[in-house]
């Protein structure tokens, strides 16, 4: 859950710093590349401050699948900060994430081939560090024209990033709908936020569902192991009853013990998850939340520890210990002590 929340937080930060409107063509309800011929019309709309055409694609750089972003020079997103060198200014140049640079032992001034046999030779002008560790791991920013050539997009862009004056988003969207000859798919920042939220809720939901299944299986397993395999505990309860304890007092003690166990188990679970994420960088578990990162995440896995999962870990451990022990303890307490002590 902490990884999911961490990735969500980084993604949200990226969205908040991103464009106000993402414009593509609509092809059967899906995004389709948008022709560059619409660029002047979009720029002319009242309220539009800036339009950035973008080409997005994925290609291999050595053994790594990298995400390539082609944008006009001088249009690097504000969250992308060059920690070494400077942004590209002309064709044949590139800015790459520090994670990727570290992986290939690249530094400013090095050149690399991108896009296979028909690709482009690009010279690194800068290394960037983004707010998002995932971005910094496998992202390459190159000039729009180079990206267009590598991915053979011709006069198309993957999308237009439209930045508008505050309060103009709806009006600009309405005007975009009226541009003749185009069937645009207009996605505002709010809509993208909703997509992210839905996506992460779904991912978190799947994990919660798996957790619930494990939880549901654990209950009968505990019942079987504690209810039917009870021996030492049953004998102990028999001794308590033989020395004058009431059934209700035995159960009270069991509840108190469970509370202590759960109160100790929850911080322990949090400590283990914290060490797993910070010490082992989410080894093995991170791949369930971040696609294609494999067993050993190549970047610092983002993680956020929120109070609700912490409370849930306490709550679930309490429920599990209660279910596992209360019924079997009650059964041992209601039979004659002589029988329970056998």
């Amino acid at each position: 859950m902490a990884i999911s929340e961490g990735v969500k937080a980084e993604s949200m930060a990226s969205v908040m710093e991103g464009a106000d409107i993402y414009l593509t063509l609509d092809q059967y309800g899906k995004n389709a590349p948008v022709p560059l011929k619409y660029l002047p019309d979009v720029k002319k709309i009242n309220g539009v401050m800036r339009v950035v055409p973008r080409v997005l694609g994925r290609t291999y750089l050595g053994d790594s699948l990298a995400v390539v972003v082609g944008i006009p020079a001088g249009e690097l997103p504000p969250s992308v900060e060059c920690v070494e060198g400077k942004p590209f200014s002309s064709r044949g140049e590139a800015v790459i994430g520090v994670g990727l640079a570290r992986h290939f032992n690249f530094s400013v001034g090095h050149a690399f081939m991108l896009g296979g046999v028909n690709g482009r030779m690009l010279k690194i002008t800068g290394l960037f560090k983004a707010d998002s560790s995932i971005w910094a791991s496998d992202l390459i920013f190159i000039p729009f024209e180079d990206a267009s050539a590598i991915f053979k997009t011709g006069d198309l862009a993957t999308d237009f990033l439209i930045y508008v004056r505050p309060g103009y988003t709806s009006a600009v969207a309405e005007t975009l709908k009226k541009i003749e000859g185009a069937s645009f798919r207009i996605q505002s920042k709010e809509l993208v936020k909703q997509y992210f939220n839905k996506g992460f809720t779904l991912k978190g939901g799947i994990f919660t569902a798996l957790y619930t299944v494990a939880f549901a299986l654990a209950i009968p397993a505990l019942l079987v192991s504690s209810g039917f395999g009870l021996s030492e505990r049953k004998r102990e309860i028999g001794i308590f009853k033989a020395t004058g304890w009431q059934t209700s007092e035995v159960l009270e003690m069991v509840v108190f013990e469970n509370l202590i166990i759960s109160l100790s188990a929850a911080p322990l679970a949090l400590l283990i998850s914290f060490l797993w994420l910070k010490g082992l960088n989410g080894l093995f578990i991170a791949q369930f939340f971040i696609a294609e990162i494999g067993l050993f995440p190549p970047f610092n896995v983002p993680a956020r520890f929120l109070p609700i999962p912490a409370f849930l870990s306490f709550f679930f451990s309490l429920i599990l210990t209660m279910v596992g022990s209360l019924y079997s303890s009650w059964r041992a307490a209601v039979i004659p002590p002589a029988e329970a002590m056998k």
Partner: peptide, 20 residues
């Protein structure tokens, strides 16, 4: 059961064969 527990608590002290 409640009354028997009270009897065991107040009136009887039991020493078991295996001490328990």
């Amino acid at each position: 059961d409640v009354a028997l527990s009270k009897v065991r608590r107040e009136t009887i002290g039991f020493v078991f064969q295996s001490f328990n």
